[in-house]
Nucleic acid binder design. Structure first.
Lengths: 126, 126
DNA sequence: TCTGTTATGTGTAAAATTCATATAGGTGAA
DNA sequence: TTCACCTATATGAATTTTACACATAACAGA
């Protein structure tokens, strides 16, 4: 048996991958800033206060560098300037590819969890 | 909004956490060596060849250090000596606690994925 | 002017993962 | 008998990911 690589990534549930997907999803309807995106995480069941802002802003810059998003500064309106992100065609394609992998990995996790749960219930009934 | 922590761990799907659970599950019926445990990953839908042996053996030592497993050397039988692991009561408790968190996190992922999938389907039908 | 909210960002530490490599006993075939 | 291959365990170091701490700045209202 040889050494190969795996990681959370293989299950599609690496933190940064999930946030990539969520941000792309949230941006499909509107262009939004990093701050607003963080707040809207609650819409998908993620507590925004758990996400360090350092991660959010760095991920968004990475996503832009990878061509999934484009940004422009918005200085109008109240408060400090916002960097507002818009999804690209490449970003949509990325999300479509992600969902395929994510579903497969969700299945793996689902099977694993029901297997373990079943075994633990057997133990209780002994 | 303040900075807090998250990570794969918050979703319960960190690589090492999954392997902890799988190993504990596999050890509920028999005592097994690291090598055999790796092979038996296929029973739960994980391709053993994807798991670097470096990770497996290190995780098992960690688990023992944390009291979830105990090991003894088995020199009888063919081939080189095996370090055979057995699950402890503490290991069983860990697995029970893990499954609760894992189910919750699976739910979060499930909702997230169906949300995104639904949105992508809308897009196709436009 | 001081506090709080909105808003974006960076440097560095810590943790997790991967890669490369080492060791060693046993088996079977050329 | 030596060479290739399988079983079996292990570690050092590089890389990647994630978390923590902090810095900056515009504006609003007391």
């Amino acid at each position: 048996m040889r050494n190969k690589k795996i990681g959370c990534a293989k299950f599609g549930f690496k933190m940064s991958n999930i946030l990539y997907a969520v941000f792309l999803y949230l941006l499909m309807d509107n262009s939004l800033s990093g701050y607003t995106l963080t707040e809207e995480l609650s819409k998908v069941g993620i507590d925004p206060s758990y996400i360090p802002t350092g991660i959010t802003y760095r991920l968004l810059r990475d996503m832009e560098a990878n061509g999934l998003l484009v940004s422009k500064w918005e200085t109008s309106g109240t408060g400090p300037a916002k960097r507002v992100y818009r999804i690209t065609e490449s970003g949509k394609k990325y999300l479509e590819a992600w969902i395929v992998k994510a579903k497969r990995n969700l299945n793996t996790m689902q099977n694993l969890i029901s297997l373990i749960e079943g075994r633990l219930k057997d133990e209780q009934n002994k």
